[in-house]
Amino acid sequence: MGNARGFLTRRKGGKGWHWTDIVTWVWLIGGLIVMFGPAVWLTFSSFKTPAALAEFPPSILPYVTQQVKVDGYEKPLALFEAKMPDGSTQVLAEVRRVGIVAQMVDPKAPGQIIRVNIADRQPVREIAFATENYTKPFTQFDFVQYLWNSVFVTVTATLITLIVNSMAAFALSKYEFKGRNAAMLVILATLMVPLSVILVPLYSIISTVGLFNNLWGVILPTVATPTGVFILRQYMLTIPDELIDAARMDKASEWQIYWRIILPLTAPALAVLAIFSVVWRWNDFLWPLIVLSRRELYTLQVGLSIYSGELNVQWHYILAMTVVTMIPVVLVFIFLQRFITTGIAGSGLK
C-alpha cells in the first residue's frame, strides 16, 4: 500500500504539489477511465440477461433475481424480500402482479397468498453470468462460421503479406536494377489511394475475376501493403551487403539468400508487420461488407454490424459477440503492445 502511494505521488524533485502535477494526474486518471472504461463496461454488460440489460439505472455487475421452485406452481417464481405490515421482513415468491399489489407466497407454506405493495418489496438478487449470451450465438446462429472466416482471412492475408512484401522489399533494398526507382514510386503512389477512393472499380474487378462472395476477394486486394514494403525495406537496408556477398561465395542461390539469410535476419521487422497485419485484417470492415453478401461468408465484423443493424436489436448477443471480436486485439495489446508502439514511433514516420 505504501508502495502504491509512493508510486502514485512520485513527482519531480520531491517538492510539494505544483498545479501541473494535479493537471497531470487528473488527465491520466481521467484517461484511464475514458479509454478503458467503455470496454470494461461493455464486457460487464455482456454477461447480463436481457432483463438486466433493460434496467435503468443499470447495475455494474450482472445480477439476476433469484428464482425458486414452489409446489403448486409450474414455473419457477422470483424471490423478493418483502416488508410485512408488522415491520418484519420475509422472503417471499411472487406469483403475479396486479397493479401496485403483488400476490406472493411463502415458499415454505405455498398455500396462502400474501398481498404486498410493490413498493415494499425488493428483489433478492444474486450475481450470475449469463454465459448463454456467448454460447447461443455460437450454437444457434452462424457466429462459429463468422469466427472461422475472420480467422481464415486474418491468417492467410498476414502470411501472404509477409511473403509478398518481404520479397519486394528484398528486391528493392538489395538489388540494383533498371526501374527500381519506378517501382518505388508506384508503391509510394499507392499510399495516396485509400480503399474508399477505388471502391467501385475494385468491386467490378473482383466481380470480373469471380471473387465476389469469396473470402479470397477480401484477402487479395489487401496483401500488397505499401507500409509493409517500407517497414521491411528500411530494415533490410541495415543488413550489411557483405553478408550477401559471403552467401554468394558460399554457393547460395538468390532464393536461398532470401529465405536463409535475409528472412531470419529481418525477423524483428517481420514480427512488427505481422502484428500490424493481424490487427488490420481482423478489424477490416468496409471491404468485406461490400464483397461478402452471403451470410455464411461474413466475417465477425460484418456479421456483428448486420446483427446490430436489425430492427429488434438483441443487445445481449451483440455485446457478447463484440467481446469475442475484441479478444484477439486485447491479447495483442497485452502481450505485444510494446512492439507496436516502438514500431510506430520508430518506422511509422521516419
Binding site: P240, E242, L243, D245, A246, A247, M249, K251, A252, S253
Partner: peptide, 15 residues
Amino acid sequence: ADRGLAMVFQSYALY
C-alpha cells in the same frame, strides 16, 4: 558461386 574460391571478409560477414 561456381569459381571455386572462398573469401574472408573485412567484417567477417558471419551469418
